[in-house]
Design a protein around this nucleic acid. Structure first.
Lengths: 146, 146
DNA sequence: TTGCGTGCAAAGGTTTTGCATGGCA
DNA sequence: TGCCATGCAAAACCTTTGCACGCAA
């Protein structure tokens, strides 16, 4: 841990993310969660702690769009090295795909283009299977745990 | 064209993007460009027109990061179907890679996961070749035409 | 005691929206 | 004439920053 001090907010935020490992949360959702607790945590603290977690590699940060807020997820158990993250532009769903082919792409990018791809941070944009079938969701802000 | 009326602002913004086809611009850069012209165009108009262009598929929109503004580029000549867009997290460079392998990834995503990937809108995050070699650029906001 | 972490509030930047006006068809 | 597009300003939004206080070591 890069942090100098061990504080309550730090532990609580990390515990919250760890307890829901495999799911993504926005900074607002995390802040909202603790605002109902006995010990509310300020937005600034949430952002500052998340920033440190991301630096440490404990938490992953996903950029979904301009204006849209970033998502954060506990990183340790996700095995994001073998994950695709796909964002449906129609229903807004964030889909999590396990796929070995990802490793080949990464190897190709590294060997042929010299680019060290951070798969955990990359989001693929497109249209999901459900929306292609015409059973598209109208809830544009849907986001499922991945 | 989906737009009902053909207006001056519409034509000028599209001409500007078309004239620099292959390069990316932020909304602010576009607005800034016209603010020096005889006929300034308001920010709201820039955003509204860009939104329509993106809907029509004439212009592509790239999400580079939270807080960072979105980039827009004329789409017709880019051939983005065969492009990787890679963003270096260290020097901030936006790299454009031609690569046939992309088609295979897209086919795989479609066949095995039912996901219709919009390659033109997706940005791969990672570390570029130059930064890995230690010749990293200090200019964190560098962005090259792709 | 030292200095990092916290909370609150304010600022920052990008994007969106309301409303009256102007321009296209 | 009818309706869309525009411009200006204000709002909304997420995120960052300043500053004084609290708390960990």
């Amino acid at each position: 841990m890069r942090t100098a001090y061990r504080t309550r907010a730090q532990a609580e935020i990390l515990d919250f993310l760890k307890a829901s490992s495999g799911k993504h949360f926005t900074a607002a959702e995390i802040w909202d969660h603790f605002s109902k607790e006995d010990h509310p945590i300020g937005t600034a603290t949430v952002y500052r702690q998340l920033e440190k977690f991301v630096e440490d590699g404990i938490v992953r940060k996903y950029v979904l769009g301009p204006g849209e807020c970033a998502c954060y997820a506990y990183a340790e158990d996700l095995g994001c090295a073998t994950h695709f993250h796909c964002k449906c532009e129609r229903c807004g769903r964030l889909i999590h795909l396990d796929c070995d082919e990802l490793q080949e792409i990464r190897a190709h990018l590294k060997e042929h283009h010299g680019f060290a791809w951070d798969t955990g941070k990359t989001v693929f944009y497109g249209i999901c299977d459900r929306c292609q079938e015409g059973t598209e969701r109208k809830n544009n802000e849907q986001r499922e745990g991945i």
